[in-house]
Computed example of a mutant assay.
Amino acid sequence: MLYWLLKYILLGPWLRLIWRPQVEGRDNVPESGAAIIASNHLSFSDSIFMPLMVKRKVTFVAKAEYFTGKGIKGWLVKMFFVGTGTIPVDRSGGRAAQAALDTQLRVLREGNLAGIYPEGTRSPDGRLYRGKTGVARLALESGAPVIPVVMLNADEIQPPGKIIPKIQRVKIRFGRPLDFGRYAGMAGDRFVERAITDEIMYELMELSGREYVDIYAQKVKTQQSKTAPTPTDTGAEPPPAPVAV
């Protein structure tokens, strides 16, 4: 109920009015039946604008910590994720990835739309990175088609670290459904799953026109965090020590 209230009354109409989304290929999303919506990931706002442009509900998963925050901020974050149809998943321990896949498989087996970011995290620099094979496992185990979709300028509207999006027309492009029925019964074959994932990433590259980098985005983020300048590196004064009281 909250999802539909936000999408069609409280949030959706205002987002359409202010950001005037320009959408190509929306008819590629089936009106009924299971399908996987596989998107590039440029910005936090991807999870707001893309589902808004689909007539049906698109279900993503997110770590359970987003639903257990304290205070007003925690409540607002929880309401946002609940209102956008996101399902909490316990991502602690060694079965975190499997828990997320199991949840999305349930969504697909109920005949609904499951959303996924194959890169696994937001791009650190706007380029498209190597996809993780979870999207292929979903396609093989569910038999659902994969609908590639690209956010064309979300990183311009809301760059990393920016809380309030810039007022600029949102551009989104949906590609034709990808059918992997020729690989039926081959779930668990890592070579097949890699081939499927690479095919999906190639479609995202073609649709977006973004440069593709054949390494995982998370690896780049980890490297960047290790080489980030310290106050001493930049010549700035170090922050003051906390005052004892």
Rank of each mutant, 00 (worst) to 15 (best):
L2G: 01
L5N: 09
L6C: 15
K7I: 05
K7A: 09
Y8Q: 02
L10D: 01
L11Q: 07
G12F: 11
G12Y: 03
P13H: 13
P13F: 13
W14P: 01
L15S: 00
R20L: 10
P21F: 13
Q22E: 08
V23T: 05
V23C: 09
R26S: 01
P30M: 04
A35R: 13
I36R: 08
I37V: 13
D46M: 03
D46A: 07
F49E: 09
P51A: 04
K57I: 04
K57F: 01
V61C: 01
V61S: 04
K63R: 11
A64W: 12
A64R: 15
Y66T: 10
F67V: 06
T68S: 10
G69Q: 11
G69E: 01
K70Q: 15
K70S: 12
I72N: 03
I72T: 11
W75K: 14
V77Y: 07
F80G: 10
V82M: 14
G83Q: 13
T84W: 07
T84P: 01
T86W: 02
S92Q: 03
G93W: 00
G93L: 00
A97R: 08
Q98V: 11
Q98F: 08
A99Q: 06
L101S: 03
V107T: 08
L113A: 12
A114N: 07
G115V: 14
G115L: 15
I116P: 04
I116V: 15
Y117Q: 10
Y117E: 02
P118M: 05
E119R: 03
T121P: 13
T121K: 07
R122W: 08
R122I: 06
S123A: 02
P124G: 15
Y129E: 00
G134A: 14
G134Q: 07
V135R: 06
E141C: 05
A144T: 10
A144D: 08
A144E: 06
P145N: 08
V149Y: 05
M151I: 11
M151V: 11
M151D: 14
L152Q: 12
N153I: 14
E156G: 04
I157N: 05
P159Q: 08
P159N: 13
P160C: 08
G161K: 13
I163K: 15
K166F: 04
I167V: 10
V170Q: 06
V170G: 01
K171F: 06
I172T: 05
G175N: 13
R176L: 13
P177H: 02
D179V: 15
F180I: 08
G181F: 15
Y183F: 15
A184M: 07
G185S: 07
M186F: 01
A187I: 15
A187F: 11
G188A: 04
D189E: 02
R190P: 10
V192E: 11
V192C: 02
V192P: 00
V192Y: 08
E193C: 09
R194I: 06
I200P: 03
M201D: 05
E203V: 11
E203Y: 10
M205G: 12
V213Q: 09
V213I: 14
D214C: 00
A217Y: 06
A217V: 09
Q218T: 13
K219A: 15
V220G: 01
V220L: 13
V220P: 00
T222G: 14
T222L: 15
Q224H: 10
K226H: 14
K226C: 01
A228Y: 06
P231D: 02
A236N: 09
E237C: 03
P238R: 07
P238E: 00
P239A: 12
P239C: 12
P240V: 12
P242F: 05
V243M: 04
V243Y: 00
V245I: 12
